[in-house]
Amino acid sequence: MRIKTVLLTAAALMIAAAPATAHRQWLLPSATIFSGTDAWVTVDGAASNDLFFPDHQPMRLDGVKAWAPDGSEAKIENGATGRYRSTFDVKLDKEGTWKIGTAMNGVSGTFKVDGAEWRVGGRRGPPPAGANAPQPNFVASVDEIPANATDLKLTESASHNEIYVTAGAPTETVFQPTNKGLEMVPLTHPSELVAGEAARFRFLVDGKPAANLKVSVLPGGKRYRDSDGLMEITTGADGVAQVTWPQAGMFWMNTSYSDDKPSVARATARRLSYTTTLEVMAP
């Protein structure tokens, strides 16, 4: 019961602090399969309701990183942020499978000092609707919580949004799990997704298979049809979600997981999320 309350509070805070969290965060690569000796991928990043139409907020580029097939960090080039989307390039100068994306970690929640409510984390949002409503007090991080604070209700949050692109023959190094938080290890390589065929993805929480996880898969291009095309898949005891691709195109895949095992001291709950964009080829 207590966890539920904390989570609800945290969720409400996140919405208040950053409206973009109510929308889908997405990365859209220009392609995921490359040949030749001078391949570049160009990627769009944004948050919006409909995939992959940038019509709400651009993705912040300061947290975007890229990893080469050997696991080394690679350069993000030509980054630019427009009104609705950000864009950047990665030069794929090594053969194999690359990982590009963001990992955000934070703690948010509330505590009290002398009966007054304070909030932790997030950015200061717009003022509450009622002009007379009291302005909440903020601290930026857990470290700034004063010693006399009481009623701590803190939630750790960690979210990954990653895409995978392959130059030449595919490799597996970038899928090596860290065994921390929520991770996806593909059993079908992301460069081998074909319409009409099934693909399997294993989800791990702290390195262990995440059973009964609800995974959402959404095709892009909703403007050109009536249905949103949402597929919801539940992982088995082995943490595996199997998706049979109804058509070719770009698909957004997302899942989240909550429990009361935070890795941050003083937090009582954690919320983990994982997002990717996968390209499915015509047969």
Binding site: I33, S35, T37
Partner: peptide, 9 residues
């Protein structure tokens, strides 16, 4: 420098 392989995919 391009060996003509760019569009093989």
């Amino acid at each position: 420098a391009e060996p003509g392989t760019k569009w093989l995919h």
